[in-house]
Design a protein around this nucleic acid. Structure first.
Length: 704
DNA sequence: CTTGCTCTAGTTAGG
DNA sequence: CTAGAGCAAG
């Protein structure tokens, strides 16, 4: 294998395949190359692909890795165990459910399902909190439970009065137990279970541990700084005494502490694995020196970190520019017209430009302006396709057709569009179902037998029951679920329902397009199953992938092809790069965000300024050639004009940064100041000279 | 049970 | 200022 294209430390990281290895990969240091070369190298050394596990945090990263490897090693790439922690969890649970205490056919709840579950528990349990006349955001509760689960804190431990610091902690602790019970009774797991149940089982069961340790020989983890306690435990148990564990990450880019990631995992790697080798990748091939100077200058202000620095490998580069606007509109105006100038006058393609911001709401004003300029853009992140309501509604109908026993799907479908079936009716149905040992769907089919149900709800139930029967008969007759689903959705007029829910027809059309995409993907899936000669499509796989995978952008639809400017939060920009980057809103309160800096608010989870600094650092290191940092002196907030101070991180930037004030059009650089000084001195010298010659002349005149 | 109005709170995000 | 949730009336 040719390792010639790699530098010395990269080569070392590729070739050190046994034992624990920590690769500290600075931004832009060729991390992905190292990972792919390393796996190819391992294959070359005769390690079986199916015993190599390579984990990352997003499906996108995993797909990219797989593609690159396919190019390097061909079809063997397909035999690697390559994916996210969660996909590994699903894989292990599906293979040996008995190891992990889950039913053979467990279902995976997505965020929306979990929210619904928490809401219904809050309602049922509501009496307990009658004293507190507060509303509780299910999101904050879900987040706490998730953090607890990933830290192996049981419902009982969560109720420890010493640990409870706010009423949110209290409510969440109260909900936690019932939540776990409901999951069990639904035969379902949530995303957190996919990791922490694996960790628990491997710890407690010798048989499970031995089996899985024998199955996997080498483990590699990307973005290791983002791992949490549960993920760390999975890794530790999986690699066993051999400790063939290679972790790649950058503590300076740890920006997910708020969702439970433990920087300690990377900072203390050699404490957990004393024989660990550490390799630093510090050469940066991405950005020009002025940008890296900024990055280095900012990040040194953090305390707990591995000592390293980004070494520029590219020549030249123009100074980083700090831009001051009077207010928000002026800031976005300036950014968008600068973008327009770059594209129209300087020939920079749109996809080479990104606007980054701290919080999603900041995107809107930029979007509006870009639209006015007629510039194409895309917004990164946002809601996943499968998380959108209409898609989930359609998906629920599909599940009802294929798995009528799926209670979650039935509950969802039965009231979309609303058929007049409320909580009371559902309660009666469920009671009847469990008494008669029926599934919810069966109970609905026989709703006339259910005591206490009549009138409007009964009508709605009968209509729903008939609808499902219709759909199923169409499915059996045609042999295609996609076709049956299409007819079913037609009949319920889901499209009209979507249109009605959203006033504007444009927004509705947009959302309906997502449903069309779902239908298309169902069709493709069935098509593939037919081609593979399966008697029945493996719907389990389909639904599993719908829950686990965010929508993949259709090939050719990416930003590059359409020359779109990218809008992204600093979080979702991680791992990406652009020639030109704007970071907007560089102000105290936005970045660092006020919820982080403020003295711990009782119902907020304490954040930390160092993480905000790392976020800023991530933003800076996204830029290849040019970087603009903008801020406004004042903003409209909640209808009021508020003064804004520059972010403390701006003060940490080196002197060489250009400072530009939009209103006064003043632009000052060190070079400018120097050249101004030169000019001044030259003038001075000239004046002196003139004065001297004048003097001479005068003296001469006087002599004469 | 649904609809429409009022009130309130207001990071970041992935599987 | 807005979106989403809660509440009261139909």
């Amino acid at each position: 294998m040719d390792l010639g294209g790699l530098n010395e430390s990269q080569r070392a990281a590729v070739c050190c395949i046994d034992g624990p290895l920590l690769v500290l990969a600075g931004a832009g240091s060729g991390k992905t190359r190292v990972i792919t070369h390393r796996i190819a190298y391992m294959l070359e050394r005769g390690i079986r692909p199916e015993s190599i596990v390579a984990l990352s945090f997003t499906n996108k990263a995993a797909d990219e890795m797989r593609e690159r490897l396919a190019r390097m090693v061909g079809r063997r790439a397909g035999e690697l165990v390559l994916g996210t922690f969660h996909s590994l969890g699903v894989r292990m649970m599906r293979a040996r459910p008995e190891d992990f205490g889950v039913p053979k056919k467990f279902s995976i709840l997505d965020q929306g399902d979990v929210y619904g579950l928490i809401r219904s528990i809050l309602r049922d349990e509501g009496i307990h909190f009658a004293g507190a006349d507060r509303r509780f955001d299910p999101g904050a509760i879900v987040q706490r439970i998730s953090l607890w689960k990933n830290a192996f804190i049981t419902p009982a431990q969560a109720q420890d009065p010493d640990k409870i610091e706010s009423d949110y902690d209290e409510v969440a602790a109260e909900v936690y137990g019932p939540y776990e019970e409901r999951l069990a009774s639904l035969g379902a797991v949530d995303f957190d279970d996919l990791v922490c149940r694996i960790a628990r089982a491997l710890k407690s069961s010798d048989a499970a541990r031995e089996y899985w340790q024998a199955r996997f020989s080498h483990v590699l983890v990307d973005e290791y700084q983002d791992t949490n306690k549960a993920q760390f435990e999975v890794l530790r148990e999986l690699v066993g005494a051999r400790q063939n564990l290679c972790v790649v990450g950058d503590d300076d880019q740890a920006i997910y502490g708020w969702r439970g990631a433990k920087v300690a995992n990377i900072l203390g790697f050699d404490m957990y694995f004393p024989s660990a080798v550490t390799i630093k990748l510090e050469e940066n091939y991405r950005s020009c020196a002025p940008i890296l100077d900024c990055a280095n200058a900012v990040i040194v202000n953090n305390q707990g970190r591995h000592d390293k620095v980004l070494l520029p490998q590219r020549d030249g580069g123009e100074p980083v520019t700090e831009v001051l606007a009077e207010d928000g509109p002026q800031e976005t105006n300036w950014v968008t017209s600068r973008i327009r100038q770059l594209i129209k006058e300087e020939g920079v393609p749109g996809h080479a430009i990104a606007v980054l911001y701290r919080s999603t709401r900041q995107a809107r004003s930029v979007e509006e302006r870009l639209q006015e300029h007629g510039l194409a853009y895309r917004v990164l992140g946002g809601q996943a396709m499968y998380d959108k309501k209409q898609v989930k509604d359609a998906l629920a109908y599909l599940k009802v057709l294929i798995y009528p026993t799926d209670e979650i799907a039935v509950r969802r479908a039965m009231n979309v569009p609303s058929r007049g079936i409320g909580g009371k009716s559902l309660e009666r149905l469920l009671a009847h179902a469990s008494a008669q040992r029926l599934s919810l769907m069966e109970a609905i089919h026989r709703c006339d037998d259910v005591p206490g149900i009549g009138g409007r709800p009964a009508d709605g139930l009968r209509r729903f029951s008939e609808l499902v029967r219709f759909g199923q008969s169409r499915m059996y007759a045609s042999g295609s679920a996609a076709l049956a689903l299409r007819e079913l959705l037609d009949r319920v007029a889901l499209r009209d329902h979507v249109m009605r829910e959203l006033g504007s027809s444009e927004a509705a059309a947009h959302r309906w397009a997502d449903v069309e995409r779902l239908l298309a993907s169902v069709e493709r899936f069935e098509q593939r199953a037919r081609e593979a000669g399966q008697r029945r499509a493996r719907w389990n796989e389909f639904f599993g992938s719908m829950t686990l995978e965010r929508d993949k952008k259709d090939a050719g639809e990416d930003a590059g092809a359409r020359g779109q400017v990218t809008l992204a939060t600093l979080h979702s920009a991680k791992g990406l790069e652009w020639p030109v980057v704007f970071i907007i809103g560089c102000e105290e309160g936005i970045m660092p965000h006020k919820r982080v800096d403020a003295p711990r608010i009782s119902d907020a989870i304490a954040g930390d300024v160092e993480e905000e600094r790392r976020l800023f650092y991530v933003g800076i290191t996204r830029a290849r050639d040019r970087l603009f940092l903008t801020r406004a002196a004042a903003r409209f907030e909640r209808g009021r004009q508020v003064k804004c101070l520059p972010s403390r991180f701006l003060e940490e930037l080196p002197e060489a940064v250009t400072r530009y004030n939009i209103s006064t059009e003043e632009s000052l650089t060190v070079e400018k100041i120097e050249s101004m000084a030169d000019a001044f001195l030259a003038k001075l010298a000239l004046a002196k000279e003139a004065a001297a010659s004048e003097d001479k002349r005068r003296r001469g005149a006087a002599r004469r």
